[in-house]
Amino acid sequence: MNLFFLQNAVSASSAVNYLPIALQVLCAAGFVALTLGISPFLGPNRKTAEKLETYESGIHSVGNARQPVAIKYFLVAILFVLFDVEVIFFYPYAVNFRELGWNGFLAVLMFVGFFVCGFYYIIKKGALQWED
């Protein structure tokens, strides 16, 4: 953008180029802090025991909410980590594949082959099956 000082920061890539982002983090945090900060001064604040109780559709809450949840969620998260790493590997290839040509494509095909093997394994293993 012509107007803003941020433009000069693009060409090279060093830590100082990310200064605008640091600024943006600061002002975003400031914005949130400001809106949350002024809100108690604008309206009444009367905290009672009932108000501060955990909401459970109008009845008194039963037990602790932090109970173990289904292991499937954990499995999905683990699978995501594995597959997301594979997706990230595609970024450098996607930018450079013109120079790499058919050889590069064959290498990626092999990579995707491994990916599909793993995928086949988790499907056969029933990792994505939700009903027991």
């Binding site: 809106t35 949350l36 002024i38 809100s39 108690p40 604008l42 309206g43 009444p44 604040n45 009367r46 905290k47 025991a49 108000k51 501060l52 109780e53 955990t54 909401y55 809450s61 909410a65």
Partner: peptide, 10 residues
């Protein structure tokens, strides 16, 4: 913005 922002006890 004028409403009370509660933080539950639990």
């Amino acid at each position: 913005i004028m409403k009370e922002g509660l933080t539950p006890d639990g």
